[in-house]
Write a protein that binds this DNA or RNA. Sequence first.
DNA 1: ATAATAGTGTCTCTCAGACACTATTAA
DNA 2: TTAATAGTGTCTGAGAGACACTATTAT
Lengths: 242, 242
Amino acid sequence: MKEISGRAKSLSFERPLVTVDVLIFSLRETGLSLLLMRRPNEPDDPYPGRWALPGGFVDVGKDRTLEDCAARKLLEKTGVKTPYLEQLGSWGGATRDPRGWSVTHAYFGLINAHTALGDAPGLGVRDAQWFPIDEAASKRLAFDHSQILGAAVTRLRGKVEYTSLPAFLLPEPFTLPQLQAAYETVLGRPMDKSAFRKRMLDAGFLEEAGAVDGFLGRSAMGYRIGNRTKAVTFPRTFKPSK
Amino acid sequence: MKEISGRAKSLSFERPLVTVDVLIFSLRETGLSLLLMRRPNEPDDPYPGRWALPGGFVDVGKDRTLEDCAARKLLEKTGVKTPYLEQLGSWGGATRDPRGWSVTHAYFGLINAHTALGDAPGLGVRDAQWFPIDEAASKRLAFDHSQILGAAVTRLRGKVEYTSLPAFLLPEPFTLPQLQAAYETVLGRPMDKSAFRKRMLDAGFLEEAGAVDGFLGRSAMGYRIGNRTKAVTFPRTFKPSK
DNA sequence: ATAATAGTGTCTCTCAGACACTATTAA
DNA sequence: TTAATAGTGTCTGAGAGACACTATTAT
């Protein structure tokens, strides 16, 4: 802040384009998945027809804050209202958008597959689609979105090692075995049941929600998340590595 | 990205102001300190005369990326070239700058007191000054800079529990006792020598740099940081809380 | 020798992982 | 009773903290 050359506080210099992109993750039959949208196919649009993260320009009239803008995009794209939404970071530069110097602000959200009626609500048919993250990562996405996706997956996998993030991927109430399965899917490795339960219950972010389930074998206790706005941090990571 | 109403790809809508702010931390005699700058005292400038984070508008002609812009600000303010620099986050909204909808991108850097010739090079006399972070936090800074500072201190203290960040606060070569003192200063609590040494040496980010020091008592081994661009993550936090 | 600081060895306690065990439900 | 799943108990090993010990230097 400052650097208004001289004392003429003209703000007439060129301003970058300002956008928000949202990475919406969900657990689907095919594993951890990401919502992508196809860019319009008009030839003088950047990256026509490419898959891209949902997002768009900040609307100076509509959005009160960046976070509001991200929540708006997410609502428009999925109909989901208050999921876990975290700022991932910003990418800005002269060349990332052919239309000019631009900055994008990436947020990532975790929603459960139940709310995200996959191919249905609001978005549906059009040009939105879920992809398993490996498949999404192998595509040549628009702009620098592949790079952003890489950062998001790294962050997500990293945080899953020591936070309760995967709980946000499940519809409530969920059981501990379901939660464990969510962790195992995201991390791609099996975990010990006993240690897992100890950790989750000790962390104190779960509220009992009555017995549930049981359409095969013993029924299980259902749980809800105490505070849906933030994840809990565990004192240690799962595998203290080597 | 998209949302260009209709198919007229006019980019003529209003764009937010885009800035970068840098939080420069250093260890000084008075403890962990932050560099602040006084805003110009012209009455129609926002927050005239207030202390603020060093920063300024992105220069679309000069800066190739956001990170470049942050490095430029840091260089202009301190003369330091390639320190540890990490993106902290972005704050954007309609009301944070009276001049209009604005987004700032905060980076924090750790530099050693030797390079940061405190009150001297480049900046010197003018309107830049180091403050112990508690004092900086108690000031009413310009814009939302107090909030940003709060986030930075939280992040820094948090990461110090499980990373090698404090090493960036020391001039090389440094000794393990010096490094331990840096940790203790930032965290505000004493640490056990034996456990500390085990952890640091096992982490494998230190390179021996020959015996050093010894102007009182036994001389110590000096160390350098292997990779100055990123901190090492330890498998556990220091005090498993509770 | 003494003071001051650097560095090591040893013990203990905590806690995560391993894994076998018990509990509950449907067919 | 069996199969399937939920949930518990016990042991062990790794590793961090506590703390006393040894090592090296200047005076």
